[in-house]
Amino acid sequence: MMSLDTYKVIDTISLKDISTKVVVRDAKKDLKKSRKKLSKLQDAMYAEGKYSALICLQGMDTSGKDSLIREVFKDVNARGVVVHSFKVPTELELKHDFLWRHYIALPAKGKIGVFNRTHYENVLVTRVHPAYVFGENIPTVHSLDDLNDEFYHNRMDRINDFEHHLAKNGTIILKFFLNLSKEEQKDRLLRRLEIPNKNWKFSADDLKERKLWDKYQFCYEDLLNRTSKENAPWFVIPADDKDSARCILAKILVKELKKYNFKEPTLSDKLVAQLDDFKAQLNKE
């Protein structure tokens, strides 16, 4: 497996030059080890109460986001992980600015929040389908001509500001793009059609969106290059092999969270001096 640092977006990248498949030997075994470490890190983060962690997941349809969340966070205390899957904005959400629904879903200190699809949908899906923006009733948007590159780059600047503010206030932000090949997506869609108990996962819209593959890749590449910052980095994870993708992402999570050296609070000298007395009281019951 490549060094974990090679997955981080530091310089300008081109997605066509990045492999979508890396096979990690003993990926499932390594994932189990990482899960235990992640659980301990979250316990310490919760006890310390200074930081929260926001894990952002983006990827094309069938890239494996749902199953990755299930497998990577399986051993973390259920109360320590909150997952939000953002769908089409509701009527109420459209009456607020485009970041509002994401802000109110942020994790509290001590917890890990996972955004399954994220605030980046606002510079991704809306860029591929700009007419969606009309639903936001923005005063300065009158026609499709207003929804140009400048509009979306301005939104990316606002997202950078948003994440900078969060990071300054104790939110650890780690963003992952599950980099799937078009060929592998085809195979996964076919499996949804061929295996009866997976039929429910298939939608005709998947095929419509697949036809826009190149536009999505362009938009992803642009946002990755413009919004990967030191306080909120993007990592491009090869997603064609699901076990390996989960293993790599979990290892990166552990490596990045360890940097914060979470410390469980220590008891005061007064309480330490009373411990034997407390034990004696309990043993007398």
Rank of each mutant, 00 (worst) to 15 (best):
D5N: 13
T6P: 15
K8P: 05
K8E: 13
T20D: 04
K32P: 10
R35F: 08
L38I: 02
L41K: 01
A44N: 10
A47G: 05
E48F: 00
Y51I: 06
I55G: 00
I55M: 06
C56K: 03
T62D: 03
T62Q: 05
S67F: 09
F73P: 12
A78V: 14
V82P: 02
H84T: 13
H84M: 11
F86V: 01
K87N: 08
V88Y: 09
P89T: 02
P89V: 00
L92S: 14
R101V: 05
H102F: 15
Y103V: 11
P107Y: 08
A108H: 14
A108S: 13
K111A: 08
K111F: 08
F115N: 05
V123N: 01
L124D: 03
V125R: 03
T126Q: 03
Y132H: 11
T140W: 14
H142Q: 15
D146S: 10
D146C: 12
N148L: 10
D149F: 12
F151H: 08
Y152Q: 08
R155Y: 08
H164R: 11
I173T: 05
L174G: 03
L178I: 03
S181I: 01
P196I: 06
L223M: 15
N225K: 07
I237D: 00
I237R: 00
D241C: 05
L249E: 00
K255L: 09
L257N: 06
F262T: 04
D269S: 13
L271R: 09
L271K: 06
L275E: 09
D276K: 15
A280W: 12
Q281W: 15
